[in-house]
Amino acid sequence: MSFDPAITLFSCHYTSQQSCAEEGSELESLGFPQSINLVRVPCTGKLQVTTLLNAFEEGADGVYVVGCPEDGCHNVKGSARAAKRVEAVREALVELGVEAGRVEMYHLPRGLHPEFVEKGKEMDSRIRDLGPSPFNG
């Protein structure tokens, strides 16, 4: 049974610049999935574990974070911190019997580049395969 997932993406200012171009229409024209609700943050290091959990509480079927490359974060260790928090959420999901794949961290180069769209498609297809979030039952 297919369903339309709701996916929340937290992306840092630097890796999500595409979203600004032509008010987001460029991203759309590149095939960025409509299921993804992009939340821009100044730095992914600012994200707390509760920020990610709240997205699930608000109904997201999947949550992911896109930050700078680990060794090239604009704020030095921001994206490395985000990766640790994503990992903490992943472990908590498993403890609750929920698929670890519903949360993910990607480190991508800054600026306009195709991987940003590719990872969005990857997440969209993964969450479609997993189905609705067990929290939304």
């Binding site: 707390q48 959990l53 509480e57 609750l96 929290f135 039952g137």
Partner: peptide
Amino acid sequence: EREADIIASLIRLGAKKEG
């Protein structure tokens, strides 16, 4: 306080999962 917020959120989610 930070960990308590996380635990509270996970309790709410855990309950939601059980309907």
